[in-house]
Amino acid sequence: MAEQKPEFWRWHEYTWRDEGKNWKDYEKITAGVDIGSVSSKAAIMVDGELYSYSLFRTGSSSPDSAHKAIQGCLDGTGMTLDDIKFIVGTGYGRVNVPFAHKTVTEIACHARGANSMNAGVRTILDMGGQDCKAILCDENGKVQQFLMNDKCAAGTGRGMEVVSDLLSVPIGDIGPLSLGVDREPPPVSSTCVVFAKTEAVGLLREGFNVAEVLAAYCAAMAHRVVTLIQRVGVKKEFAITGGISKNAGVVKRIEKELGVEAVEIAPDAQLAGAIGAANFAKDLLAKQMARAAG
């Protein structure tokens, strides 16, 4: 019997909750749900403070993924969907969050989220599963300019998963491995998923080892997104959100080429969209309550 191939691309799914808080003590319960092409995230806030969040892989159905993500935040809390007063949906499949009261673009949510996680953030580079965006925001996290490359999915999580699988390297090891090389092959000319495969195989054949090929791929990805950010200009602080923010091999190379270090945004840069959406939900709920109080 053929041995099952390990899933090198598979990353860690998780949920978290603030055990020190009892949600029943709070008045404004809001949530944000961010359905990306690769990962689904949800965050619940109580009176504007983070209460719980979750991160799962997006399945074939966006509505199911949305339910799974929010359920991950609810499990074990005794809270139900009906207890959440306002839910904002966002992301790649944002029209597919069936229980959302409103949808907000992911550009606005990422800026708001990253800025709420670190108040100094003005430039956000969102490196998601299927696209990559450069965003400038003001001190309130409101978008001033954004740009994405609508043609090329360079610098995306999906591409990294393909490379991980092709070279049989667990996805979490790519960054460290790519940074440990003594020599780097010339950056692969294309970060397009299809061509990268061919180029990676070619480099291996030329005698470069796996770590060196990874280095070339990370360098190419970093270079492509740096040209994107340079078009909007970098204002400090600079933060990277989305799945690739966890790949030090790409992050370090972006920092080096830009000459700017990326700030850390806790608890997890991948949650910026969901946390931003929950923040929008908080404001929208406040507006709704003010209107009701009339």
């Binding site: 300019q145 954004f146 740009l147 994405m148 609508d150 043609k151 090329c152 994107l228 078009r231 909007v232």
Partner: peptide
């Protein structure tokens, strides 16, 4: 807000 729509590729930069 400045919203840039388009792309850049090997041949140049095309944004509206």
């Amino acid at each position: 807000m400045l919203a840039n729509y388009g792309y850049s590729d090997g041949s140049g930069t095309y944004y509206i």
